[in-house]
């Protein structure tokens, strides 16, 4: 027993010694993360103190326990916010990937080079439109008095619609605009990994008499699984960041739409815009981080159960 312990200890030191150059090369990265990502974590303590300007550092401020977290549930919205945040993100992830994969497969089967390139570019372009501009586009489409939608409706003799007073409509609008803006990007990634699939598989399948659908279903899709899992995990990590710009720009201060469009990020932003307090701001951040951490851990565990190779860690 003791022998193995000694052996193990020696092993670690030995390892360090043996690969010291490699470890040295790793050092900058470690330092980078230490300085930029780990040291600032001390600031989490702000979440538990009453911020004031008199103290020179946070450890002198009064400790108030969980009081800073109170505002998150005081308005009774925490559950709804969390549901909205997760709901939207699931919709985003599923739809973006689903659409991106199907379009990528379609495009890869196309033979016309020009058409392919142009379609690809057109679908990719919205990715570069900023959310601020998107919000202006949306406002010009849907505003009650001069919006494109209502002008068209009026010309057709129909009643104008005030979309800015219809919360349910925004669930779809937000998802649609998110797709419009983002799926081109994922599609390009999938297209790239499709290009990486060896032609031999397809030729062999062709000889065996597989038609185009069978080839896509049995060769292309399984080969994309890896890419999908990686994109999925990346997307999950960003859930708690929740696409703030999208929601904030499209909905803004219109309280009427909050019931269906408010996510954690926008809520926190609006609260602290008015009552900016280091303590409460940090508390909100801590809540988001813990939530995101739990989410990633859960999903990663599930993936590891299914297939160990796909898991992040």
């Amino acid at each position: 027993m003791s022998k193995t312990m000694v052996h193990k200890k020696k092993g670690l030191l030995h390892e360090l010694n043996k690969n010291k150059i490699l470890f040295l090369m790793l050092l900058p990265t470690l330092l980078y993360f230490l300085i930029n990502n780990y040291v600032p974590m001390i600031g989490i303590y702000y979440a538990f103190v009453q911020f004031d300007f008199h103290s020179t550092n946070m450890f002198q401020m009064a400790f108030i326990g969980l009081k800073n977290f109170e505002f998150l549930w005081k308005s009774g919205k925490l559950i709804q916010l969390t549901i909205n945040t997760i709901g939207y993100n699931i919709a985003f992830i599923v739809l973006v990937n689903g659409l991106a994969i199907s379009v990528a497969v379609l495009l890869s089967e196309l033979r016309g080079k020009w058409f392919k390139k142009i379609t690809q570019s057109i679908l990719f372009l919205p990715y570069f439109v900023s959310f601020v501009i998107l919000s202006v586009i949306v406002f010009n489409l849907f505003n009650y008095d001069q919006g494109v939608l209502n002008t068209v409706l009026e010309k057709l003799g129909a009643e104008p619609i005030n979309l800015y007073a219809k919360p349910t409509a925004w669930i779809f609008l937000i998802i649609i605009f998110f797709l419009w803006k983002n799926f081109g990007y994922s599609m390009v990634i999938y297209l790239a990994s499709i290009t990486g699939i060896s032609e031999e598989y397809y030729e062999a399948a062709k000889i065996d008499g597989a038609n185009i659908f069978q080839r896509s279903w049995h060769i292309t899709l399984p080969m994309l699984k890896n890419t999908f899992v990686i994109l999925l995990l990346f997307a999950l990590g960003g859930i708690m960041k929740g696409q703030f710009d999208l929601f904030y720009q499209m909905v803004g201060n219109n309280g009427l739409l909050f019931s269906t469009t408010d996510i954690l990020d926008t809520y926190v932003y609006r609260s602290l815009r008015v009552t900016f307090d280091m303590g409460m701001a940090t508390a909100a951040g801590v809540y988001q981080s813990i939530f995101g951490f739990a989410l990633i851990m859960t999903v990663n565990t599930i993936i590891r159960k299914i297939n160990k190779d796909y898991a992040l860690f």
């Binding site: 009081k67 800073n68 109170e70 505002f71 005081k74 308005s75 919205k77 809520y267 609006r270 609260s271 602290l272 008015v274 009552t275 307090d277 409460m280």
Partner: peptide
Amino acid sequence: QAERAALEQ
């Protein structure tokens, strides 16, 4: 403070 932030919302 907490009530104030919640009320604002």
